[in-house]
Structure formats: structure tokens, C-alpha cells
Design a protein around this nucleic acid. Sequence first.
DNA 1: TCCGTATCGGAACTGCGAGTATCGTTACAG
DNA 2: CTGTAACGATACTCGCAGTTCCGATACGGA
Lengths: 201, 201
Amino acid sequence: MPEQDSLAAPAKRGRGRPRDPETDSKITRAASELLLLRGFDKTTVDEVAARAGVGKATVYRRWPSKEDLAFAAMQSLYSDEFPEADTGTIEGDLTATYGSIIAFVNTETGASFLRMSIMESIRDERIASLYRASTERREEIARRTFERAIERGEVRADINMDMAVQWLGGLLIMREVTGRPLPTLDDVPDLVAFTLRGIRA
Amino acid sequence: MPEQDSLAAPAKRGRGRPRDPETDSKITRAASELLLLRGFDKTTVDEVAARAGVGKATVYRRWPSKEDLAFAAMQSLYSDEFPEADTGTIEGDLTATYGSIIAFVNTETGASFLRMSIMESIRDERIASLYRASTERREEIARRTFERAIERGEVRADINMDMAVQWLGGLLIMREVTGRPLPTLDDVPDLVAFTLRGIRA
DNA sequence: TCCGTATCGGAACTGCGAGTATCGTTACAG
DNA sequence: CTGTAACGATACTCGCAGTTCCGATACGGA
């Protein structure tokens, strides 16, 4: 179960020239930029090294293969979280949560991030598990939101929680995959309404 | 705008050895099998030719590149439609429609098909447009289902139709991408309930 | 019947990129 | 100082995927 192949042991070295502490992050940053831009198969290790301003050997001294490099690069991207909203009503919480998600995927970075996560998840199970973990952290927040609303009596207790917390993410992925426009902030009220009321008259 | 590079003109040839009429379909069949199994990047033209029992030149005589071959192979897969349900109630229609979709993606072929459609759509815009067209045909059926229900007064007239017809597909794609189990037939009632009622108490 | 042509399967060719090895150089530990 | 290991650069091997070439073959037309 390979972890960050770098960053783990290098502190112990006493002999010889020490590793430049910034080089690791320069390489992973260059790698993730190129991955976001082109995807794994169209990114070459030479390009990554050139963009990071290092030699190819310096890359391979840290990660034994391109796959491991890609994994490390992706790892650094799945760190930031969405804030948890707690406004006191389910409408308020959903509006805030959906709003921040929609705002994110409507940025250039957000869209690339989504796109690349999808593609690389299918290509490599290790990256899929990174994306899955990130997704599940977000879902856990939504789950708590719904549970608070159930306690307040705003939401039925017998809902299928998985669907409730997952459907919006699914819609975004589906739109991205089929090349159709993502929802915008103007759509947030409709998204909230759909979650709450469904479609019945 | 290249169409099926094969199948178009070959009827007119009088001179020379005629093309074996079965070769086209043998190649596209082999290609789509391998694409479903491994995806574009991990499929080689050698393999396709070997599996079809033809020489590699025979492949390239028909399609100028691997991309064109993949496009042709995919094209033949996006033909079959889901039947349109019209039971008289929105519950009945949704249960039937969702049931046939869920049944399909729970087969081996269906899952591969979904997975490969996602991956290839991101990789190649031409294939994306095939998948988008197929998706939109399915959505059009769902749209009519909802419109009938609106006329019957079962469904509000002001719903956001796009979300209503897309959310389930999105959920499936999301589950597939994140490597989590797809809904089963047992989940159909919950899926229908979510569509109709949302989560509100 | 025999020639020209376009097909066939198989084999050769080409280019590219991952990964390795080797430079001379450099920064630090002892 | 001296030894060691990292450094950037470069050249290399090697596998393999895409593409093209080749001798053989099958058919239409004269």
C-alpha cells in the first residue's frame, strides 16, 4: 500500500547534499497543473520536469513511476473542504451548501478539477479512492445537515439518505460528462426545491 | 465532418478484388468489445486486428486512424433505445422506466457500457456527442412522461424539467465513477419516491 | 482465358515516451 | 578539506502503438 513515496523518510539523511525541500512541491504542482490541463495519458514526465525546472532524474529519485507521481500530485489537490452550513433551517443550509458547490464548479479550476477527477478515477483505482474519500467527506457534511433537519421535524425520517446527499453531485458529473452546461447560481433555488419537494403537485 | 468512413461508398467498385462484406462488422465488433473491456488507451490496433482475424492494414484501409475506428465502433453501440412507458400514472411510468434503466446498468455489459461511455466522452469530443445524443433521446422520453403527468395534474407545471429527467442518470454516473455500488431493483421505489416527494416532511 | 486492380494477412518500419544511466557540478556533514 | 548524495542536463535503451509496405489472392472486364 504505497503512500507518499516522498516526504516520508528523508529527514534522517546526514551524509551528502540534502534534498531541496521545495523540489517535492514544485514537481507535484507542475504535475497537477499538467494533469488538470491534459490528463494522465497526454502528460509526459519530461514536460513535468521541464515545467518544475528540474531534471527528470530528480523526479524519478522521488517517485518510482509516472503513476506514483500522478497519485502524489492528485493527493495534494484533495485537501480543501467545503464549509458546513448551519443556518437553522433546511432551506438555508441547502441554499448555502449548494451555492458554494455550484460556485466552485463554475470556476475554471473547479471545472477542470471535476473533469480530471472523473477521468483519472476511471483510469486508476488509487486515484478513484482519493476522489471517493473526498466525495464522502462532502457527503458526510450533507448527511449531518439532513439529520439536523430530521430532528427539527423539517424532513421525513425515512428518506433514502444516500440519494439525498448524492444526487446533486451526480447531476454535475452527468452534465460535465455529456458536455452540457453546469447549473449556475441562478439555479440554486430550483435545486433546493427539487430536493425538498420533488415534482409532485 | 467525417461520418462512417466505411459503409459509405464501397458499392460502386467494379474493379479489383472486392472487400469481404463481413470484415467491417467483424472489426467494429472486435473493437467495441475491447473498448468496453479496457478503454481506448489500453486497446491496441494489433489486438483489434487479431481478434477480428484480419491484418492491421485491413483495419487502416477502412478507418484512417485508431480514433476513427473507435468512433465507428462506439457508433454501433448507441443504437438501442429504452421503451417508453405509459401506464397512466406517474408512479407507474417512473417505476417502469427506472426499473429498466437500473436493470440494464446492473448487467455486466451495462456497467461496462456506462463506464466506457464516461471515459471516452471525456477523452474524445466526437464520442461525447454520441453519448450526449443517446442520453438526450432517453431524456426526451422521460420529458414526455412528465409532461403527460403535468397534463393529468399529477405533477406541478413549474418544475425544472432538466433536473427531473437528469438526476437519476447523474446518480448512476456518480456511483460508477466513485466506485460505489449502483442502485438495484430494490431501490426503485425509493428512487421514485425521491423524484416525486423530495425529502420534506 | 488472362490482365489489371483492389483486396487480403502478415511483416517491417517509425516515432515517441517511460524509465535508466551517466555526465560534471554543487551543497552539505564530518 | 573530503566524501557523499542530490542536482540539472543529456543521451541512451527498450517496448510498443500507429502506420506503411509486400507478396499473394480474388474478382471484373476484355
